[in-house]
Simulated scan of single mutants.
Amino acid sequence: MTQEKSRKVTIAEVARLAGVGTATAGRVLGGYGYSSEDVRNRVHKSARQLGYKPNQLARSLITGVTKTIGVVAGDIQSPFYSSVLRGIYDISRAEGFGILLTGSDEEPQKEIEAVELLIQKQVDGLIVAPSQLSGAEHLQAFVATGKPLVQIDRIVEGLDTDAVTVDNVTASRRCTAELIAVGHRRIGIVAELEWWQGGNFEDFIAGVLEGSVSSDHLFPSWQRLLGYLQAHLEAGVSVDPALVARVGTYSIDAATAAIASCFRHSAPPTAFFSTDGLMSAALMGVLKAERLSIPQDVSLVCFDDLDWMQFHEPTISAVVQPTREVGETAARLVLDRIADATRPPRVSMLKADLILRGSIQPPANSV
């Protein structure tokens, strides 16, 4: 038994049933040019009656609109980007747009290739988490095409576009301040701090102490370090650079080694602040290996509230990022600019909330 192949309805058949010319039917179904309301109603009624499905590729060649938004995520495996993508998808789909997803693995060359691919796919707009915060000629070139670009999570210096970020500095300052408030003075921090465009690590700390470092064009991990340092300054607590577990290669092994070195210090930390989920996992591993209890031996607060943190005993104090809102806001900015390319760029900085649980208490040696 053979199955009869379904025949594709042509635009000429729709035109004939509607009593109009093929060109007129094409304009109505393609959404371009002028046609009277009566003609539009007849064409759409005929299309529905015949089960006509428009050729999206042909339509995009005529209108220059593909109804797609390109997304370049830094790490498509991370919970952060998974939630951001959910927000982008929900808003885009509600407006009849699809998304084309690719990633950079936080590598500039991969990002360049991803953007080139999305340009070839003729996306109507681009949402990207930039992997470099200066230069970025490929993003400048995309903006020059006249199509909208929205930066998320970080902002390239000199790239004047819409953007959505999280207020990492304020949230991290509050995390550290909570630890200081209960008596901690030896507070460790673990973060991916591979490089800073303003100089070396020591230059960054000196700049923060002098008040000359701006958070505008920093990677999130450096912004969180900035908040940590600011909290010390505001409380009049000295900063020991030896308690900064600086991770160069973003891996749990590198983070574990950096954290372990802090606990080998002659005056080890009594509290620790981890700046993302992977760093938190590494920190938990070190505390277990060292047989250190939370919060009796080490108080703990983490950036990114992962599922296990509210079920761990004790529960872990953590910062909740508005990840889905980041995606929703980015999608709205792209769609708004597609509708009106003349408005000034907008930068939306979203608040991150700290949830205090059971992982913070005064240090054991406090009076």
Score class of each variant (00 low, 15 high):
Q49L: 06
R93C: 10
I127N: 05
S60I: 04
G103V: 06
L126G: 08
A231P: 07
E37D: 12
L226A: 02
G96F: 06
T315V: 07
L335Q: 00
M349W: 01
S172H: 02
L149K: 03
L85R: 00
F311Y: 14
F273E: 00
E106F: 03
E4V: 15
S215A: 14
T165K: 09
G19Y: 01
E37V: 10
M279K: 09
V326W: 00
T165V: 13
E178M: 12
K110W: 06
I88V: 13
F311I: 14
S221I: 03
F303V: 08
E234Q: 10
V320F: 02
Q109K: 14
R186Q: 14
A231C: 05
V150L: 03
D160W: 14
E313Y: 12
V65E: 06
T270I: 06
R346A: 07
T315P: 11
S359Y: 14
R185A: 08
K45I: 08
A254Y: 00
D167N: 13
V334T: 08
G96W: 05
V244I: 15
S46A: 15
A25D: 05
A260D: 14
E111N: 00
I189K: 01
Y228Q: 02
I112V: 15
G236S: 03
L283I: 07
D353S: 14
D153I: 06
A258I: 07
G31Y: 04
T24D: 01
I112S: 11
V72P: 03
H184V: 08
I69C: 12
V65Y: 03
P363G: 10
S131W: 10
S261V: 13
V143F: 09
G64E: 07
F311N: 05
N200R: 09
T256P: 06
V326N: 02
R324Q: 12
T145F: 09
L179V: 13
Q3Y: 11
P148S: 08
I205C: 01
V150E: 01
R86V: 11
